[in-house]
């Protein structure tokens, strides 16, 4: 599973960790994140992420 980097603030989405504060369980691949998921640091949308 690939990590993805937010192009706006530099936050790295690590699928092993998920994003529990936004209800995303550890082990969730980036591709499976809901389309309305946003970067927990800066609010950027999935479109603003690139593969690390």
């Amino acid at each position: 599973m690939d990590k993805y980097v937010c192009q706006l603030c530099g936050y790295v989405y690590d699928p092993m960790l998920g994003d529990p504060d936004s209800g995303i369980a550890p082990g969730t691949p980036f591709e499976s994140l809901p389309e309305n998921w946003v970067c927990p640091i800066c609010g950027a949308s999935k479109d603003d992420f690139q593969k690390e």
Binding site: L8, C9, I41, C42, G43, A44
Partner: peptide, 9 residues
């Protein structure tokens, strides 16, 4: 109204 990264988190 939150405005994250405009221009800080």
């Amino acid at each position: 109204i939150e405005a994250k990264m405009l221009h800080w988190p």
